[in-house]
């Protein structure tokens, strides 16, 4: 301390520099002005507050592609409920840390995208007021059916019903997912495609191996039969073995 009150004057110099600097150097500003809407208009009454989805989308594109706020259910191209990926396996419901997901399995099965008929969620509710945006449901889902939405203005005048999002509110198309999280969605789609290709290749290989095995078996059996027949020509033939393997193959083919 060379000067009496030197530290205080130094501090005052710092605040003065910040005072002046904040007018010229935008980098210094702690806050950024929040543009309410694209035309910078304040909402006029309380009901106006939540933004339209499209408006929020324009905001979230400035946010990073990992932004997560709230889960949504993905469906592929087509009618939402015809192509929903969720099979109501209820893993997410079990794993959800704050237990905010409520799923009811359907009674009947439904076929989607050429796959085997599966259950679908008859009810799929998420309580926004409980959800803590942790993304655990996304990670545990084996069907890539649930991903995070970045829609962030979920306020509603209805305190109970409005905060409980129903299945139909949660359904979003894969295209929408691509729009909000392009990189993540592309990676996910690629992984699904790879997995599918790998599965198909595996299946093909398995089928071929099976076919070969069956052929070999049929051949061997035929040979054995011929031998048997040769051994006891008067004995009537048994039910043909290949039919059995065919049926088994069909069963596996699903």
């Amino acid at each position: 301390m060379s000067l009496l009150g030197g530290g205080i004057f130094k501090g005052m110099a710092v605040t003065l520099r910040n005072f002046v600097g904040s007018y010229f150097d935008k980098e210094r500003l702690t806050t950024k002005e929040y543009a309410w809407r694209t035309d910078d208009k304040l909402p006029e009454r309380a009901g106006d507050y939540p933004k339209e989805e499209a408006e929020q989308l324009s905001d979230t594109t400035t946010v990073t592609h990992y932004s997560r706020n709230f889960p949504m259910l993905l469906h592929d191209e087509g009618e939402p409920m015809d192509t929903v990926r969720c099979v109501a396996c209820q893993i997410c419901e079990r794993e959800c840390p704050p237990q905010c997901i409520y799923i009811e399995k359907s009674k009947d099965k439904m076929e989607r995208g050429g796959n085997k008929a599966q259950f679908y969620p008859a009810t799929f509710d998420i309580d926004v007021s409980v959800c803590m945006s942790c993304q655990i449901c996304v990670e545990v889902c084996p069907f890539d059916a649930i991903v995070m939405n970045s829609q962030f203005e979920l306020s509603t005048p209805d305190r109970f019903g409005g905060l409980l999002l129903r299945r139909d509110d949660l359904l979003k198309s894969n295209d929408y997912y691509h729009k909000i999280h392009p990189e993540e969605a592309a990676a996910r789609d690629k992984r699904i495609a790879d997995e599918k290709a790998a599965k198909e290749a595996k299946k093909k290989a398995a089928e071929e191996a099976k076919k070969k095995a069956a052929e070999a078996k049929a051949k061997a059996e035929a040979e054995a039969k011929a031998k048997e027949e040769a051994e006891s020509a008067e004995k009537p033939a048994e039910a043909p073995a290949p039919t059995h393997t065919d049926a088994k193959k069909e069963d596996n083919g699903e």
């Binding site: 605040t15 600097g21 904040s22 007018y23 500003l29 702690t30 002005e33 208009k41 304040l42």
Partner: peptide, 25 residues
Amino acid sequence: KALARIQNRIGPNKVGVPLTPYGGN
């Protein structure tokens, strides 16, 4: 306003003279 600028904030800047009862400020 000055404290805001010292703290690198913007300070009050919204409230002004309402031109019409339905908006416009």
